[in-house]
Design a protein around this nucleic acid. Structure first.
Lengths: 205, 205
DNA sequence: GTCTATAACGGGATAGAC
DNA sequence: GTCTATCCCGTTATAGAC
């Protein structure tokens, strides 16, 4: 039985690291705290000493995970760059993040569907779908006549869909197109340009 | 406690109908056969008499559900229609299906992630991502010089992403844009045209 | 086919010693 | 902080009567 955590980590970090791997791999329900404890080489009592409950442990992990990536993405969206530049950077950065964490999208979706009510309460979701400055800029460009009159909401959802969805069906894509892990990565790298061009095409006059 | 099934249905159908509603709403793991039995007004033993196990019940439901919708979609893709017409019809039909079953996309994704290995074995998945004839036609049009030289795989994934992904984050979209159920439906109807135009734009010379 | 009762197990959480 | 032992619960599944 191999473990995910090095021995020189603090107990708390060992638990979090092990739990994250298992949650990503098997989802919340199918991951038992017994297995987390076993793999982290501690016992259940200790896990509950640090996190009080499985749910708590999960929330703690979930927040740190998203907190790690959303700031970069949001800083792109709220930067003073021109629209096209922004789109290009956002697509590239987002895909790079997901290439490093292919299960992240489904992970977030599963949280969304497990806690359909808590969405508003969880601040972290706000940052995942943050169009504030972007929409304003979009409207400005439309008003100035620089781009086509496209609904920013539709546009933003197009962008999100094109970037993230392929990762949720990664297995199917690989299977159907006989791709290896490396081929899939290559495919997603090529996709950066495909998506960017596509998005810009829809707004260019 | 209300139930999902009418009294004049056969016991087997009552179970399937009730189970489907619960699986869609709460997912496989969080749905207990106790609750299915309670809502279907039968007892657990009877459920296991008909389906032998929860897993079995699920598979049975899953196959019937997908079998209900995939034929229409595939018949569009393999029809002798011109490419643009095909795309338009596919987008419209798919969105209409998902408007009637908003949870369907996530449902399929959850199966995908719960049984990452079984994908190939389950024939039903084949039909969900079936590009056979479509890809051929696509290549033909490229060869004839009628459309741009675009990778059919990228194109098909674009199409799938744009159609299905919004339904997996329906709650977030509604929340963020202060939409009601009806507004969301309206939004998705408008989306048919948005997506179709977008896709055609990317291949038109 | 349908029921009651119960087996057999695994889950999360906690008490209390060290 | 860390452990062992245990509680209590819900889960799926089955045996056996009707």
């Amino acid at each position: 039985m191999f473990t995910f955590a090095a021995d020189n980590m603090t107990t708390e970090d060992k638990i979090k690291k092990t739990a994250l791997t298992l949650f990503l791999e098997k989802g919340f329900e199918r991951t038992s705290i017994r297995e987390i404890a076993r793999r982290a080489k501690i016992n259940i009592a200790l896990l509950n000493y640090y996190f009080r409950s499985k749910e708590n442990l999960f929330n703690s992990i979930f927040s740190s995970l998203l907190g790690k990536y959303t700031p970069e993405l949001n800083s792109i969206l709220s930067s003073p760059l021109p629209l096209e530049e922004k789109i290009k950077l956002y697509v590239e950065e987002y895909i790079d993040i997901l290439l490093k964490n292919p299960r992240l999208t489904y992970f977030v979706l599963s949280v969304l569907h497990r806690n359909p009510d808590k969405i508003t309460k969880m601040k972290i979701f706000q940052s995942l779908y943050n169009t504030g400055n972007f929409s304003t800029q979009f409207y400005d460009e439309v008003r100035k006549g620089n781009i086509k009159d496209v609904d920013p909401t539709q546009f933003f959802i197009n962008m999100l869909s094109l970037i993230t969805f392929p990762f949720t069906i990664k297995q199917v894509i690989m299977e159907k197109n006989k791709m290896s892990e490396d081929t899939f990565k290559q495919f997603m790298h090529e996709r950066k340009q495909v998506i960017t061009e596509m998005l810009i095409l829809t707004i260019k006059k």
